[in-house]
Design a protein around this nucleic acid. Structure first.
Lengths: 176, 176
DNA sequence: CTATGTGAATTTATTCACAGCA
DNA sequence: TGCTGTGAATAAATTCACATAG
């Protein structure tokens, strides 16, 4: 497939596609274009997505349940292999074939080859959960709480704050 | 408060703070710093966040319920005044003092001064929901489905794809 | 001939350093 | 004296145009 067609898919220009790819290598064939299958494989390798990443979920409330039920993780090689909550009524139950464990069991993650975690707890507990995750050897955290969490810089945190994202919209709409 | 202190809060340099602010006006006082209250007011005005924005939620599953229960919208002036679902078992019930209406009622949003909407439905329905929202006069959409949705360019869409955000993490962690 | 890959030109963003105001 | 606001210098990203490979 040509860079022109790829560009259409993501609404950018063809030269942006080619230039960006060129920073990482020569993925295409001149006169022909890009082989999609090979391209996907190369990009996955660059993004370190070519192996399965075991992921832990902390907080099985509404948001956590939505994450557990989310069907879109597989294509990137993510697998949620552990879920934690502090509510005794939830601990021991299963959701989407994942057993919910007590929050005190976070320290077992290191031995279970889990390297990523998703924080979906009320914001006031976000920092202490993050501390426990770091202590357990987690390397990356997806943080759904609107609170800034402090971690050693060897640990990567990506925060999704729903309210802040929503707050970007009004700027683009004419004030009524 | 000085630009130095503000910079610390968001982990950037003080000159970035000052330069960015300067593009929109003179908010500070030389030798003193910035008045936080006034600064917040000015920024809210620039981002068009100084009035209440009525917001509709479409899809009251796990994710939608989490959004409804989310306590962080108030400070930005958002108010979820309508919720929709296609499940007859949910329609008519109340969640967080918002009545759940049938999805067929989306066309009433225009008359109700709702200008923003949050899409939290399974991805295969995202486009048709977006179409209905546009027809009802919605100006901005926060899309939680991983699908690219097409809207007229007068409508602003911001997409949050959980899997894509999670997929950014492995790049930063050393491959095991 | 077609479509990539990349130097060069252009535009945009970041960083610096300091004049100017409280 | 202290801190802002901003021109000037530097760096980075984007866009262009085309040589080059298939």
């Amino acid at each position: 497939m040509s860079s022109d067609k790829l560009a259409d898919f993501v609404s950018v220009n063809s030269w942006q596609i080619r230039k960006d790819f060129s920073y990482f290598g020569d993925f295409g064939t001149r006169g022909v274009g890009y082989n999609i299958e090979n391209l996907a494989r190369q990009i996955k390798k660059i993004l370190n997505l070519d192996a399965v990443h075991k992921t832990a979920l902390v907080g099985v409330g509404n948001l956590g349940s939505a994450v557990l039920a989310y069907p879109g993780f597989g294509i990137y090689g993510f697998c949620i292999t552990a879920a934690f909550d502090s509510d005794p009524a939830k601990v021991g139950r299963k959701m989407n074939s994942v057993s919910i464990e007590d929050i005190s069991q976070l320290n077992t993650l290191g031995k279970r080859e889990v390297d990523l975690a998703i924080i979906a707890v009320p914001e006031q507990y976000a920092q202490e959960v993050a501390d426990a995750l770091v202590k357990a050897g987690i390397k990356g955290i997806l943080n759904f709480s609107p609170r800034r969490i402090n971690v050693p810089k060897k640990v990567k945190v990506i925060t999704i704050d729903i309210a802040t994202d929503l707050a970007r919209l009004p700027y683009y709409i004419p004030s009524s």
